[in-house]
């Protein structure tokens, strides 16, 4: 008995101060890739190198580069594009708080053809390999609900986790936010066993075909307003499995998504940030990036 007490007192407090205090990231940590439009010569090596196929190069009729888009929702943060870029225009930053309420925000744009994007830019659509979600983001459904999420769930949020074809890395990171280091329960965040007790469904994985039915059933069993958080590259945009007919290619192809948390897997702080942002306890730290040369 005293042994337990002694060990725990000797260990001290291990819970991180995040999000109130700073965290230290190791030097090799790979966060959001960033593109320097001044150095990019439009060779397209990154498009070839990207295993998730989320980089797209739009070209003018004469073949000169017009715009580079990078869909962070499906990015697996492997850094292969940065290694492949002969001009050194891509580097991996340490930014990991990428949670967004809007899918479109996550599509990074780099305009490469002079100061103005030009009149020939009709395709402002999402990047290669992704179609627009079948449902609009929840805030466009009703501003009323948007205002009241913080009011209802700002102090307490109950979550049902649904793993729908994940590789289990995201599930492990979601589990980790419950441990003593990240301790999500100090924010009133708890995980419940039934979707009927939940305010939010937290979905990981690209939604395999076999899990699409159970996910819809869980969604139907969740009480209104049915918040849904997509965690990880697969859940946000299909990730590496977007091309497989055995997956649906992302959660928003099956149920409407409230918040997207990119990462492969997103680190526990990023998931915590996404949850707190949805609860309106912290401000979003990521806004749409559109670089111009």
């Amino acid at each position: 008995m005293f042994g337990y007490l002694w060990k725990s007192l000797a260990t001290g407090i291990v819970t991180q101060a995040y999000p109130d205090g700073p965290i230290s990231l190791p030097e090799r940590f790979r966060g959001r890739p960033d593109v320097d439009p001044g150095r990019c010569d439009g060779c397209g090596s990154c498009v070839q190198a990207c295993p998730a196929r989320v980089i797209r190069m739009d070209r003018h009729a004469d073949g000169s580069p017009r715009k580079l888009t990078l869909d962070l929702a499906g990015c697996i943060f492997c850094g292969d594009c940065a290694v492949a870029c002969p001009a050194g225009a891509i580097r991996m930053t340490q930014q990991f708080e990428l949670a967004s309420r809007d899918r479109e925000t996550l599509v990074m744009e780099v305009h490469l053809s002079g100061p103005s994007p030009g009149p020939d830019a009709p395709d402002h659509g999402p990047a290669a390999g992704s179609e627009p979600p079948r449902w609009p983001p929840i805030e466009r459904i009703g501003d009323l609900l948007k205002e009241r999420i913080g009011e209802f769930f700002g102090r307490s949020l109950h979550i049902r986790e649904v793993s729908a074809g994940s590789c289990n890395a995201c599930d492990l990171e979601v589990q980790a936010i419950n441990n003593v280091i990240f301790d999500a329960s100090r924010f009133g965040i708890g995980f419940v066993a039934s979707p009927r007790h939940a305010d939010m469904l937290l979905v990981t994985g690209p939604v395999s075909r076999n899990m699409a039915g159970p996910l819809i059933e869980a969604f139907n069993a969740t009480p209104e307003p049915k918040l849904v958080m997509a965690v990880g590259a697969c859940s946000c945009a299909g990730g590496l499995f977007a091309g497989s007919p055995q997956t649906m290619g992302g959660t928003d192809r099956v149920v409407p998504v409230t918040t997207y948390v990119p990462g492969c897997p997103p680190r526990p702080q990023a998931i915590l940030h996404g949850l707190l942002m949805t609860m309106e306890r912290v401000a979003p730290r990521f806004s749409k990036i559109a670089h111009r040369r």
């Binding site: 590789c167 395999s208 075909r209 492969c264």
Partner: peptide, 30 residues
Amino acid sequence: WQHKGIEKLFEGLQPQAGVRLAERISGDTS
């Protein structure tokens, strides 16, 4: 329930690109 057709996705990939997919077969055994 988790079937994603990984073995089919491997086919036709460059050998180097296959490593990224192999890392995502089972997250804890990446």
